[in-house]
Amino acid sequence: MKISFTINGKQETGEVEPRTLLVEFIRYELGLTGTHVGCDTSQCGACTIHMNGRSVKACTLLAAQADGQDITTIEGVAPADGPLHPMQEAFRDNHGLQCGFCTPGMIMSALAMVERHNGEALDEQTIREELEGNLCRCTGYQGIVKAIEAGSKAMQGAPDVQF
């Protein structure tokens, strides 16, 4: 079956089997490999993307369900040759990653979190509660929580930034 959707501002079309997962289409057909597959059982959140502005797990969506929708992946949060998004920068500054496998999902979840709270700076408790859909096996989360706290603050000072 044929599907067509907007991804990172670009219109894409493709031919998929009904059972094709959205994350498979994004990675293997579109070559956008920033969206990771960690557990493939909707627990770890490494495959988190935004669909119509909301964080969702791309391993638990059919590509067919994305037909006609608006999708953003980690590749779409900052220009390829430009500066990092303030949230990405905050992960770098605050030791928010070690191996980096969970990081794209963490950042997509963090941006959705800021969006849910109307762009306000986030406190530690909110971050810990709302990060429950993302697993990290390296850091122990301290650096990630600090990074999201700093990233949400940095986004205050950058009103033009996307999300």
């Binding site: 909707s42 909301r54 797990k57 638990t60 979840s109 859909g133």
Partner: peptide, 9 residues
């Protein structure tokens, strides 16, 4: 219920 991503779907 679940986590934020699950609650969105």
């Amino acid at each position: 219920i679940g986590d934020p991503q699950v609650r969105n779907r």
